[in-house]
């Protein structure tokens, strides 16, 4: 598909060539739980902030794997760290630390 460099909506095109493996490994070193997410969406279903704003940990993890970390950061900005997601996660992911680590690793400092 031709990218004209402008559009009505931001491009949702996934370009896996842009995937930053080093960054991802850096994140996985801090919080290895990022690897075990199975994208069930339980976290998103119970999310306190999700009631008022578009936020989803499931989607954020997907976005990172799809080389769109900016989108992931945008999604996680609204998180209140209440920890409901960690209580419902069937994989026992340490979600609060994962969220903090994603923001910490991918934010431009």
């Amino acid at each position: 598909m031709v990218d004209f460099g402008f559009g009505l909506v931001p491009s949702s095109r996934i370009n896996l060539d842009l995937f930053d493996k080093d960054k991802y490994e850096e994140l996985a070193a801090v919080e290895p739980d990022v690897r075990i997410c199975m994208a069930c969406g339980s976290c998103t279903a119970v999310c306190t902030a999700g009631k008022f704003s578009t936020t989803s940990l499931r989607e954020a993890i997907e976005d990172i794997k799809n080389a769109q970390p900016t989108k992931a950061l945008e999604l996680l900005k609204a998180c209140q760290l209440c920890g409901k997601c960690s209580m419902v996660c069937p994989r026992g992911i340490n979600t609060r630390h994962l969220i903090l680590s994603i923001i910490n690793t991918y934010s431009i400092k």
Binding site: A49, F52, S53, L73, K77, A78, C79, Q80, L100, I103, N104, S107
Partner: peptide, 12 residues
């Protein structure tokens, strides 16, 4: 470490 991380609670 964490206080400076960005957040956006404008929806509140």
């Amino acid at each position: 470490v964490n206080n400076a991380l960005p957040y956006d609670y404008s929806y509140l």
